[in-house]
Amino acid sequence: MKKENQSNGLIWAVVFAIGAIMLIWSMSTSRTGQVWVTPVEHAFTETGVDEDGNAQWASIDAADATVGDIEWTTYSVVPDSQLTPELMESGTVSLSWSRTIGLWLAAIFTLFILSFLVGDNPAYKFAEAMVVGTSAGYVMVIGLWDVFVPNLLGKLMPGLVQSFALPGIEGSHQEFWWLYFIPAILIVMLLFQLMPSGGWISRWPIAFFIGITAGYRMIGYVEADLVAQIKAGIEPLVAFNGDGGFALWPTVNAFLLTIATLAAMVYFFFSIEHKGLVGKTARVGIWFLMITFGASFGYTVMGRIALLAARLEFLFGKWLHFIPSHIDFSFAAHLDWIILLQLM
């Protein structure tokens, strides 16, 4: 335990020392962690009224805007490559404090999560608590604005929704609009799950969910994963070239594909004891399944490394401004050295 603590301390010290040196160096040579923005003016003037009595607006130059026009300002980020000292002194760009703080927070949160590698710690737990809270809130907001408002409220109260949030929606009730009270009632019933008693009421919407899902899955799986896959598996075993001649390797592959599929299926067939011919076939099936899992493992590793690379690019690029702008493809010529160095 003592040895582990010492090792922990050493790793922390190395990580902090490297981080501090990189940060100081970066801040002294570039605008590390700074986000600069330039304002973009938007102005709109009323051009008339359409047949439904709604005002029509057109975008105009902000300099031409007069009283009664609508104006606002948004800010767009100035890329670091375009941020020259002259531009900064000209006053057309400014440091965005909200985005700069956000960038630092993003970097710190990334490091908090990364800190779990050294062991569970309060920084990681704090970040974990935040990700749960913000993600749940975010998903709920999106669900309400993107589905609940246009697809439910927009059907039950189209006039209201049109007047405040979605002017483009049909303002009058559709035929059979009252049918939408059913999903509304089902939502209310579903929320009874949160009550200490009366939880059985939520079974109605849950049963609806289950029934629909069972129906969907049955159709989808029968058509695409059962019938289509069996059809795809029944291929001609002998292959020919374009000129009609016998093609050896495609034939071997076709045989192998069919035999391997059947063998792997035999392995999953547990109603017969895996003995004799069945046992041997199942064993061949396992070999093919192992190759499948090996390939899956290789692909999974590739995916995970890509995600890590993206996060490190954020830290070294967007935050620390460390990454040079050019890509060096000449390393292909020195691949032997790279692999040798790594083995060492």
């Binding site: 809130g137 939408y180 579903l190």
Partner: peptide
């Protein structure tokens, strides 16, 4: 209805 109810499930989750 199923798609609308899916939002109810999101609210329930939250």
């Amino acid at each position: 209805w199923f798609n609308i109810l899916a939002v109810g499930a999101m609210v329930l989750g939250g």
